[in-house]
């Protein structure tokens, strides 16, 4: 575990720990909600980065894993009164399974075609669940207030959900780092750089890509369970909102794709900015447009993102910022 002694990893973890403990200190529910949103984004973006940043495949409809996880969890809560510690892994497992099946069937598509098919998968899933009676069709699943009882009431349950998300975000940042610095990760990076050349060198690209896809899907599945449990209800439109995927792509771009720190920074900055725009009377109504202009500027002028820019500007940082 010597490779875990990397300053870049510790900087990243420190940032997230400081952020995560902030509501604990203030004991303020509003702060907790704000940080929860950021942690959710950190976890989702860091996961998506395994596929996007390391492997070079653009999963545009990645929210499908979040939505599916959410639905599986809600179904378990509703039908079986299942505890959180079963529902959360179940959501992750379902997402991972879907990713495995998809990985075997769609990862041979490259570039734009892959991005398109992931959009199609998300829309198909949304439309399918919309017709699915056990999942409540278009009205979705609504939880009874009593589900929070075993956790000592709703207030406590919300804190529990918060700390679970916090822990999972930390865990997956470590996992993301370990992937990046592993042999598996090197294989992924070589696929990103030149898939054909990588295969000639012996990289079994179909398998590696599938596992990258699975790993990038598990946490979003678990986060979906947490979010909708806290939310109390889930509907197809909320669970499979394409914009959610895209926001996370923006965060990764902002921070720097393919780096461990990038998605974390991107998530924090994006969510903070969005929050500020939403409360500003001037920008409230055109918040989306301002974000759009910002995104365009990043895409056009700093496509490697903040961390990527730093790494290019100061090559010494490559070792420090994985």
């Amino acid at each position: 575990m010597k490779r875990l002694m990397n300053p870049g990893l510790w900087i990243t973890l420190l940032i997230v720990v400081a952020l995560g403990l902030w509501p604990t200190i203030t004991r303020n529910a509003a702060t907790r909600e704000l940080v929860f949103t950021i942690l959710l984004a950190i976890g989702f973006a860091s996961s998506l980065n395994i596929l996007l940043g390391y492997t070079g495949y653009v999963s545009f409809g990645h929210v499908v894993f979040y939505g599916l996880g959410g639905y599986i969890g809600m179904y378990l809560f509703k039908q079986y009164n299942s505890p959180l510690w079963i529902a959360v892994p179940a959501g992750g497992l379902a997402a991972g399974l879907l990713a495995f099946i998809l990985g075997k069937s769609i990862l041979h598509l490259r570039g734009g075609y892959f991005a398109l098919v992931t959009i199609g998968v998300n829309e198909a899933m949304r439309a399918f669940i919309n017709t699915l009676k056990p999942f409540g069709g278009p009205t979705g699943i609504e939880l009874d207030f009593s589900v929070y009882k075993p956790y000592g009431g709703a207030a406590n349950a919300l804190w529990l959900v918060y700390y679970t998300a916090f822990g999972l975000a930390l865990l997956f940042i470590i996992i993301s780092f370990m992937i990046k610095t592993s042999k598996f990760g090197l294989g992924l990076l070589s696929i990103r750089e030149d898939e054909d050349a990588a295969e000639v060198m012996g990289v079994i690209a179909p398998n590696l890509k599938t596992w990258a896809f699975v790993l990038s899907a598990i946490l979003p599945g678990m986060l979906g369970v947490l979010f909708f449990f806290k939310n109390g209800n889930v509907e197809p439109g909320d669970a499979f909102r394409l914009g959610f995927s895209i926001e996370n792509l923006v965060m990764i771009m902002l921070g720097g794709q393919g780096t461990v720190l990038g998605p974390v920074l991107g998530a924090i900055v994006y969510q903070r900015l969005r929050g500020l725009l939403l409360v500003s009377p001037l920008f409230k109504n055109i918040q989306l447009s301002v974000s759009g202009v910002l995104l365009l500027v990043i895409v056009l002028f700093i496509p490697v993102g903040a961390v990527g820019w730093l790494r290019n500007r100061f090559p010494r940082l490559r070792r420090v910022l994985p």
Partner: peptide, 26 residues
């Protein structure tokens, strides 16, 4: 030539050693 541009020279060669016949660790 097909270098893996965004990887270092060392990493490029490690890919060859890791995934080729001998299947080495990093």
């Amino acid at each position: 030539v097909r270098p893996l541009n965004e990887l270092t020279v060392r990493e490029n060669v490690i890919v060859g050693a890791c995934f080729g016949r001998e299947n080495h660790r990093l």
